[in-house]
Design a protein around this nucleic acid. Sequence first.
DNA 1: ACCTGAACACCGTTCAAGT
DNA 2: ACCTGAACACCGTTCAAGT
Lengths: 198, 198
Amino acid sequence: MARRGDHSRAEIHRMALDAAERLIAAEGDRGFSARKVASAIGYTVGTLYLVFENLDDLVLQVNGRTLDDLFYALQKRQGATGDDPETALLALSNAYIAYAEAESPRWNMLFDAVAEKGDNPPDWYQQKLGRVFGLVEAALSPLTQDATEIQRVARVLWASVHGICLLKIRQRMNLAGGQSAEDMARLLIENFLRGFRG
Amino acid sequence: MARRGDHSRAEIHRMALDAAERLIAAEGDRGFSARKVASAIGYTVGTLYLVFENLDDLVLQVNGRTLDDLFYALQKRQGATGDDPETALLALSNAYIAYAEAESPRWNMLFDAVAEKGDNPPDWYQQKLGRVFGLVEAALSPLTQDATEIQRVARVLWASVHGICLLKIRQRMNLAGGQSAEDMARLLIENFLRGFRG
DNA sequence: ACCTGAACACCGTTCAAGT
DNA sequence: ACCTGAACACCGTTCAAGT
């Protein structure tokens, strides 16, 4: 057991998030609880509530880290800035699918929370999400000067690739008629862009 | 408390599913438990385990009913058989979005379960899902004679509309740039089909 | 044979009490 | 001031025991 003063509030905060990530990676959403996180960092359950509002708050913070991680993973696999939209989008969607596969427990957690009606995620969270969307928008930017149209297309395509990804990760791929998620995303993106370009 | 012999196994089964549906509709996935279902039908928790393998099994059966319900809701709003694919698809996607909105708790439950690796849903469940896909395939059938291509396109479009729907229901719509789910689905379908037709 | 009810091993959350 | 640990009100699941 840690004694008082051993760690600052900020340290306990960080330790708890680290431990939560490890637990989620190891056992998924199921084998993860406030009590396990607490004991993994050598503290009592009660201590967590000095540092987090509740378990949903802790999960939100974990999700924030995942969004950062995802952003960097996508950025790394992003093509050159001169790429045509199709090449750039395919690179992004493949990277997204690869991330979801490689980090499926935390990726799942990202979308599991069914928000209560009317409460949006906090600003800092939305900013992290916006940064991910930004990559998609950047890939689309050569298509048109209309910024709101780019925004709309980016959101539609991202939501769509996400839906395809869900089918794969949630093991519903038998329903995909033998296609891989990558093939499905390619079919989507190629045809959409051909139609969009007119 | 119900006395032994009051109800057959099949009756208890049905009563439990009815009660579960009511609880889910009223309180969502959160306010739903084996103990609540049992007490809602006047039995002890243990009794549920005579009729269901476990709670996941009960949820699967509830989901089966939801898939049937969804199928009929989509069928009802399906256009005429002579409709062109675009009209038919837009009708289906709008009906899908409307269903998700109207029945969001059970619709959410349909996709919450993170399947363990390698275990597919049972055959009867896949058949119910296949019936829903069948509607999408029927809408696409005028596009080409190639049955596997229709299957692939149907799955890609369905997964995509589903992803868009998720954004709306999970209250992430602030990320959709003010677009409604219906508008997003329309943007997707119109451009995809224009591209697909070449 | 059918169902109970108590037990087991867990939960999230709170908060008086200890150091 | 910081943290504990016990309490509260729950969980899913099992299974000896009652009728």
